[in-house]
């Protein structure tokens, strides 16, 4: 009966380790590979939450398409190890306290709210409510306009990428 909990903690450790590796890595390609680790761990967590379709989309779109684009650009440019510069004092003296403040606020909210006692139904207790069929019904009925708007967004992004990456004459 401890199975899901063990899987959760394994994936959580994997994701946090990947995120820390992303920060510590000197080479951008190592950061990219550790980010892929985070994404695969999150895909397993989505499976655990009973969101199979989102898990598949996470692997195909994020770990597949987006990260391949990142790795492709890193290899294309090939700038190697990132140099350590220290021009910005603002990051150290303002950014770190603000980051900790954010974390403390989130932790306090989680501690005080009632949502912590609500139980997320994991795999095994999945109701039909999250099947791919219901998800698509929701997406193409209630959120149809948003769906069409995102297609325009993608079109604009394609045009923008083409215009930006074109060789300037």
């Amino acid at each position: 009966m401890m199975g899901p909990l063990i899987v959760f903690f394994a994936c959580a450790v994997l994701a946090v380790a990947g995120a820390i590796l992303l920060i510590l890595a000197r080479e951008p390609i190592h950061s990219a590979l550790s980010l892929i680790l985070v994404m695969v761990a999150l895909a397993i967590l989505y499976l655990l939450l009973g969101a199979e379709f989102i898990s598949a989309v996470q692997i195909i779109v994020y770990a597949g398409a987006v990260m391949v684009l990142f790795v492709f650009v890193i290899m294309l440019l090939n700038f190697g190890v990132e140099e350590r510069t220290d021009f910005s004092k603002l990051a150290k003296y303002v950014g770190v306290p603000l980051g900790f403040f954010l974390l403390i606020e989130v932790a306090r909210w989680l501690y005080e709210s009632r949502i912590g006692s609500v139980v997320a139904s994991g795999a095994g207790t999945v109701t039909v409510a999250a099947s791919t069929r219901d998800l698509s019904a929701e997406l193409f009925r209630q959120y149809l306009f948003n769906f069409e708007a995102t297609s325009i967004l993608i079109l604009v992004a394609i045009l923008g990428a083409l215009v930006l990456a074109r060789k300037s004459q």
Binding site: V16, V96, L102, A120
Partner: peptide, 21 residues
Amino acid sequence: MIIPVSYYLVLSGILFGLGVV
């Protein structure tokens, strides 16, 4: 064994904080 949703939220918060850092 059912996992409380707060576990997921704490993990999400940690990952977001590491992203900010």
